[in-house]
Design a protein around this nucleic acid. Structure first.
Length: 291
DNA sequence: AGCCAGGCTAAAT
DNA sequence: ATTTAGCATGGC
């Protein structure tokens, strides 16, 4: 039935690929000669937005593109989600500014490890660490002829076999022992990432919180970006800034009250709302030419 | 409770 | 141009 092909068109609309890939949820994408190059499920792929959707290209002809469809989440009804947001000024501004921003559906392990690296790091540095970890410990991937080698994200077994020093050499700093212990716990089956899909969001969060290096913020990132729990609401400094500036201007707000607010105000797709607030606030202070 | 730990960016000086 | 604040977590 399905034809073998190196290229595939995903006929999505209302999908801002650049905003989605640079909005701090994934760390392996980079723009090269007009294409977004990255790795999904141990497969090198490059993407480009066109009028008729997103065109994807892999090194060897394949028949099944479901893995990438899942990752891109292009079938999701974005309009329904945007309509579910509260009808207030901050959300209107964010939605208007970030039209087409999407949430990806990423691999739980890669996502978890990446967000363990993320603590007190900025996006550029997280990208650096992930790149080093992949180069040093990942599987070499199949590439188009003439392309520089690219490596997949190493499995927990591989990283569990590393020394703390080897991990520190990837610029992880104090996160190295956290990642190492987390990888070992996963290998021993003390936490099973693949079982969390079928749990409630609170159960899944409690499992993730057992892992060293994972606090509430990082757990919520993984719940949202890898498991697709739509209410998971990571609050980092940008989102905190957005909440304070736009919802509680020049008012001191207690942590407790703020937590209650984010848990109730944003509706069934609060996580999506969070991504719009995050991206909008992050983009506001930047040069306008980036749009 | 309050401080510190890589290292890099952005803000402040 | 140079200094410094800040980042999210866990350990002390």
């Amino acid at each position: 039935m399905a034809e073998l092909a190196r290229e595939h068109l995903f006929p999505v609309r209302d999908y801002d690929l650049a905003a989605t890939l640079t909005s701090g949820q994934a760390f392996r994408w980079r723009l090269r000669e007009g294409f977004w190059e990255g790795v999904v499920d141990q497969q090198w792929v490059r993407l480009q937005s066109r009028d008729d959707g997103i065109i994807a290209e892999v090194p060897q002809p394949i028949a099944d593109w479901d893995w990438l469809a899942q990752y891109l989440q292009g079938d999701l009804d974005l309009d329904a989600i945007l309509l579910s947001f509260p009808d207030d000024e901050p959300m209107r501004l964010s939605v208007t500014a970030c039209r087409g921003l999407r949430l990806l559906r990423q691999d739980p392990w890669e996502s978890l490890a990446s967000f363990i690296f993320s603590s007190t790091k900025q996006i550029v540095q997280i990208q650096q660490i992930v790149a080093l970890v992949c180069e040093r410990f990942g599987q070499r991937l199949l590439m188009p002829p003439g392309h520089a080698p690219v490596f997949g994200f190493p499995l927990p077994e591989r990283l569990a076999a590393c020394s703390e020093m080897e991990l520190r050499e990837c610029k992880m700093g104090f996160r190295a022992p956290h990642l190492l212990r987390t990888a070992k716990m996963l290998v021993r089956g003390e936490v099973t990432l693949s079982s969390l899909h079928s749990r409630t969001v609170n159960e899944a969060r409690n499992e993730l919180l057992k892992l060293p290096g994972v606090g509430t913020k990082i757990a919520n990132c993984v719940l949202l970006f890898a498991y697709g729990f739509p209410t998971a609401f990571p609050v980092d400094v940008w989102v905190m800034k957005a909440l304070r500036q736009m919802y509680f201007p020049r008012r001191r707000i207690r942590q407790k009250r703020l937590q209650q607010f984010v848990g109730t105000h944003f509706g069934p797709y609060a996580g999506y709302a969070q991504q719009y607030l995050f991206h909008y606030t992050r983009m506001k202070g930047r040069s306008p030419k980036l749009g």
